[in-house]
Design a protein around this nucleic acid. Structure first.
Length: 224
DNA sequence: TGCCAGGCCGGGT
DNA sequence: ACCCGGCATGGC
């Protein structure tokens, strides 16, 4: 079986097991963009608490977020952790859209994936995963998101090598899958679902999984 | 109760 | 070019 078919089989296996994930958990492009920053190295439950605070204060608004004093914003997003740096990162990103696109997210997103990604990455606090989250889930353009779960699971399947970097892993998926927003959306969401259930660090062997979707690699460090 | 969570930056080698 | 400390809350 060639690699492309293996990937689709892997996708179908996860889809059958976990069903549709309905990602991203957020109602508007702005909310999704904010969630992408807040969830950096942080449990999504904590992000929800922070976003609920912003909603309660009617702060899911670019102009308001540009103008709010950083210390006030920091208090509201506190539950998401790293609240000082995340306040800066959020306002860097929001300010970018405000200054370059007059706060019009639709116009910001109305450009090629390549140039959108470049602009996102130029913002301090937006790295490759956050940029791809925003492009895929907020702008709804086909870019494959790589995260810690993607890495662990892809490694177990020997799809990638341990030393592979973000771009290499992203390229692997994109060159073996059709560039389809729905597919990329669902695939990444399913990887997270699978990872949360079966690839927590303290579970060394994924052949303990109810799902027969992971190979056991004896050379893999136990913590993965 | 300690360990972990859907990263990223900046300073040091 | 890598390597690593720092950032911080809430849930299990």
């Amino acid at each position: 079986m060639n690699t492309a078919k293996k990937l689709m089989a892997h996708y179908e296996t996860m889809l059958k097991s976990f069903s549709h994930q309905h990602w991203w958990p957020g109602d508007t492009p702005l909310e999704i963009m904010i969630g992408a920053v807040l969830t950096q190295n942080t449990n999504w439950k904590n992000v929800e608490l922070a976003i609920n605070n912003l909603k309660r204060e009617n702060l899911l608004d670019i102009e308001k977020l540009v103008k709010i004093p950083p210390t006030d914003l920091a208090q509201l997003i506190k539950p998401a952790g790293y609240f000082t740096v995340k306040t800066k990162r959020l306002q860097n990103l929001i300010r970018f859209v405000w200054q370059n696109y007059k706060g019009d997210l639709g116009r910001f997103f109305d450009q090629s994936i390549g140039s959108l990604r470049e602009e996102l990455l130029s913002v301090s606090g937006v790295g490759p995963e956050t940029a791809d989250d925003i492009i895929l889930y907020a702008a709804q353009k086909p870019t494959f998101v790589v995260d810690a779960y993607t890495y662990r699971i892809a490694l177990r399947h020997h799809f990638i090598a341990q030393e592979d970097d973000y771009q290499t892993i992203k390229d692997f998926f994109e060159s073996n899958l059709p560039a389809d927003v729905h597919l990329y959306n669902e695939y990444h969401a399913l990887l997270v679902a699978a990872g949360k259930n079966f690839c927590k660090r303290k579970i060394p062997l994924c052949d303990q999984c109810p799902l027969n979707i992971y190979d056991h690699n004896p050379n893999l460090p136990e913590e993965f």
